[in-house]
């Protein structure tokens, strides 16, 4: 039940964030989708042992969160919820990969530790960039962007309908679960004897609802096609944004900025 509630609240939080009006929010959704996908490709394309050269990519989420007026807390919370499994898998790397790779003063750094660090940074970057995309764009605009880049319409409509009724069903499930908890006295979950009837009842209710929605659609002239609003067109602003981001990603990809910077500085000390 806690999970149901937090899911519902999270959806609403992101929805509220997406309703803001900043420079980032005002960009065409397609541009943001393409940029985010490119960013994730760039991040994942770095090799296992790359740590320092990944760091400048942090500028991207940081800048977007600042410009898009996004709070750090909910995004950090999401990150922490997702992290354990991936960090666990990552932590196995130092166990299996003990080849020394770098020296830091007297310490030898093994490949495993480097790749673990690399996975953690990649996790941070990919998770935040995806969350930033929805929090600055909103589901509906992402769907228009998907339609614009050629995702088949039935899929786009499916996502829109799913998302629309997710809000309704989460509330309904929350109430049912609450009713169950109030009469069960143990809060660990649903007893196995009630699995079928609880979920089954909800399922039947859901299917009845689908029937009513279908009738409501028919009453308004539905003939198999759902009209969708097309995404906004690209303007100069969008092209500049996209080019700037791509240039930045490329720059980070091929020039190890921290290394260069550090060498400049430590070289100066010697």
């Amino acid at each position: 039940m806690i999970k149901l509630k937090s899911t519902w609240l999270d959806l609403r939080t992101i929805d509220d964030l997406a309703a803001q009006n900043t420079f980032i929010h005002s960009l065409n959704s397609c541009t943001k989708l393409v940029t985010t996908l490119a960013f994730i490709l760039f991040v994942t394309s770095f090799s296992n042992y790359e740590v320092t050269s990944l760091i400048p990519l942090l500028f991207y989420p940081v800048a977007l969160m600042s410009l898009g007026n996004l709070p750090y807390k909910p995004i950090a919370k999401r990150l922490l919820l997702i992290a354990p499994f991936i960090v666990f898998i990552g932590l196995l790397n130092p166990i299996f990969d003990k080849a020394p790779i770098a020296k830091l003063g007297p310490f030898l750094i093994t490949g495993g530790w480097l790749s673990f660090l690399s996975i953690t940074i990649k996790l941070l970057l990919t998770v935040t960039s995806a969350l930033i995309l929805v929090a600055t764009t909103g589901m509906n605009s992402i769907c228009s962007a998907m339609a614009q880049i050629g995702v088949p319409k039935p899929i786009v409509i499916q996502i829109l309908f799913m998302y629309r009724y997710l809000h309704v069903l989460l509330e309904e499930f929350l109430k049912t679960n609450q009713a169950y908890d109030l009469r069960s006295f143990k809060t660990t979950g649903i007893h196995y004897k009630a699995w079928g009837s609880l979920l089954g009842q909800l399922l039947l209710r859901t299917m009845d609802r689908a029937q009513r929605i279908y009738q409501a659609m028919l009453c308004r002239g539905f003939d198999g096609k759902v009209p969708l609003r097309s995404a906004a067109s690209w303007t100069k602003k969008e092209y500049v944004y996209l080019l700037f981001c791509l240039f930045f990603f490329l720059f980070c990809r091929f020039i190890n900025i921290p290394q260069t910077l550090g060498r400049l500085l430590t070289g100066g000390f010697q």
């Binding site: 149901l4 829109l160 309908f161 799913m162 629309r164 859901t206 299917m207």
Partner: peptide
């Protein structure tokens, strides 16, 4: 069309229920 949408939401929400 509506059935798939609503059932998608149904499965999504049921994934949040602990058995």
């Amino acid at each position: 069309v509506p059935l798939m949408g609503v059932l998608g939401a149904f499965v999504f929400a049921s994934q949040m229920i602990n058995f």
